[in-house]
Simulated scan of single mutants.
Amino acid sequence: MRPHAFLAGRTAAVHLGLSVGPGALLEVGVLAPNRAPRARGVRGVKVAPHLANVITHEEVRTTDAVSTWAMLGAELTIRELVSLGDQIVRIPRDRRGALLPRQQLGTIDDLGNVVAAGRRRGIGRLQEALPLVRVGSASPLETDFRLDAAAGGLPTPELDVEIHDRNGTLLGITEFVFSQFRTAVEIEGDHHRTDRTQWNRDIDKYAAYAAEGWEVVRLTSAHVRGNRSAVGIVRSVLLRRGWMPAHS
């Protein structure tokens, strides 16, 4: 790339480690009034300077995560924008479960600021997606379940919650928690099955939860995206645990 050019769009998202389907072309941007690059296999993008923040990541110039989210407003669905937004605002944890706020790529306020920065392509979708973004979803699969649960009328869960026993000892960290009904929902990737250490850790964790009166609902991609039974499964547990839907 020329010195003033930078990665943009899906290419920037992938470079930043965000989960979004890569495009067919390498996307390279420039700030106006520079001319967008034209080359085989390259999609050139020209953007107004106030609508993009450019950083250097792993020695390559690229739009930052928040600007990348905004620039994808014209081509991603609202659900995809929420998923991408969730990835940006999540606060990672280390292997011991400690939060790492310095590794957060952006805040919900940051996303709001780019939406308010001025008219751009896809502004309507960005405005619709922004109120749905939450801190705490660690993967697109978790975002999918969260959105489906809201659409299905389930109560609003707490996200990325530390569960302690009555003595204050940390038992584990769970993706979705309905505290009032002592119900924890775990979205499990395939590594929970194939990693023996993780498998044994999960068994110990769920036994400890049960001893403290929690019921654990374990869901996989097949429940969330396959037969789409996840919301119904959680609904049944919550009803059994005392939840009364507002319309009942």
Rank of each mutant, 00 (worst) to 15 (best):
M1Q: 11
A5G: 06
F6K: 05
G9K: 13
G9A: 12
R10G: 11
T11V: 05
G17Y: 01
G17F: 00
L18T: 15
S19T: 12
V20C: 03
G21H: 10
P22W: 04
P22T: 06
L25N: 11
G29E: 09
G29Q: 12
G29K: 12
L31K: 15
A32I: 04
P33N: 01
R35E: 05
R35S: 04
A36K: 15
V42H: 12
R43E: 07
R43D: 07
K46T: 14
P49T: 01
H50M: 06
H50I: 09
L51I: 07
L51G: 06
L51V: 05
N53I: 04
I55M: 04
E58H: 10
E59M: 06
E59A: 07
V66K: 02
M71H: 03
A74L: 00
E80L: 03
L81Y: 11
L81R: 07
L84G: 11
G85F: 08
I88P: 14
V89N: 04
P92A: 12
D94R: 14
A98G: 11
A98P: 14
A98H: 13
L100N: 13
L100D: 15
R102H: 13
L105V: 08
G106A: 01
I108F: 01
I108R: 12
D110Q: 12
L111G: 10
G112V: 03
N113Q: 10
V114M: 03
G118T: 01
R120Q: 03
G122R: 10
R125A: 11
E128D: 04
E128F: 02
E128W: 03
A129W: 02
P131A: 00
P131I: 05
P131F: 00
L132C: 10
V133C: 11
R134W: 13
V135P: 13
G136T: 14
S137R: 13
S139D: 08
L147E: 06
D148F: 11
D148N: 11
A149T: 03
A151T: 09
G152L: 09
G153P: 05
L154Q: 04
P155R: 11
T156Q: 12
P157H: 13
E158Y: 15
E162A: 14
I163Q: 06
D165R: 14
N167K: 02
G168I: 09
G172L: 00
I173P: 14
I173L: 14
T174Q: 04
S179A: 08
R182E: 00
T183S: 08
I187V: 15
E188P: 03
G189Y: 05
R193N: 08
D195A: 01
D195V: 02
T197I: 11
N200I: 02
D204G: 05
K205M: 08
K205E: 04
A207Q: 02
A207D: 05
A211W: 00
V217P: 08
R218T: 13
S221L: 13
S221Y: 13
S221E: 07
R225H: 15
N227K: 10
R228T: 14
S229T: 09
S229F: 02
A230L: 09
I233T: 06
I233F: 02
S236I: 05
L238E: 07
L238T: 05
L238V: 09
L239S: 00
G242Q: 09
G242I: 06
P245H: 06
P245S: 08
H247T: 07
H247K: 14
S248V: 07
S248A: 09
